[in-house]
Design a protein around this nucleic acid. Structure first.
Lengths: 110, 110
DNA sequence: ATGCGCTATGCATAAAAGTCATAACGGAGA
DNA sequence: TCTCCGTTATGACTTTTATGCATAGCGCAT
């Protein structure tokens, strides 16, 4: 028996940011390409693209600067806003998992 | 922008208990009927029934004692095991929401 | 006997998620 | 200049999951 938790941010009742999207942005930052990032975190390009589109629409912020064609076929980089948002979200998650796990052990397996 | 969180328990990777199921069991306890409970928390009887079935199968514990037919058409009551489980889960949720909300405000709206 | 409100469940429908196919872009190298 | 490559960008289809509908059976009370 395991405890699980999710943490996400909504705008007008629609999810805009969570763990999966965090992974995606981090991977884009690392690999410089949506395509490569998607492969790395094992989701389809289509899905990654939809995530980004939805995030940007709902937050009203440009998160990923894209280029189709050109050197290496193009690529994508995070905007400054994206980095700031990411940082805040990381702080948000920090420590929460531990609190929950500890509580679970204490209550269910004391 | 709001922060949301979910907390649930899994057995072998399958969810067995979360907030929705907690509401359901509490409502059954209160109303003495799956049907009435489902109406009260605005889900279909079908869904409530599926929840209970899955929970019982995965936990391997009988949670709800049911009777079809009889006085008042029958009804349902929680088993002792269900009450114990419910109590533990309630303790589990307690305080976590507050921690998350506080953290969210501090980080995103400081 | 009949009615009532309940449990029980198969089946159809709807919604969501995932997959596939295709187009366009623009630098690099032949 | 022209083709190739890896990328972004989407529409359309398929598969899976969730939801809702319809119907049957139960047993007390009247």
């Amino acid at each position: 028996m395991d405890i699980k938790s999710k943490l996400w941010i909504e705008v007008e009742g629609e999810p805009v940011f969570g763990r999966g999207r965090r992974f995606l942005l981090q991977a884009i930052d690392q690999y410089g390409s949506i395509n490569q990032a998607a492969k790395e975190i094992s989701i389809s390009y289509r899905k990654a693209w939809s995530y980004i589109k939805a995030m940007e629409e709902r937050l009203g912020i440009k998160l990923v600067e894209r280029q189709a064609g050109g050197k290496n076929g193009g690529g994508a980089v995070l905007t400054k806003d994206a980095r700031e948002f990411l940082k805040k979200y990381e702080q948000m998650e920090e420590g929460i998992r531990e609190i929950i796990d500890e509580k679970f052990r204490r209550i269910f397996y004391r």
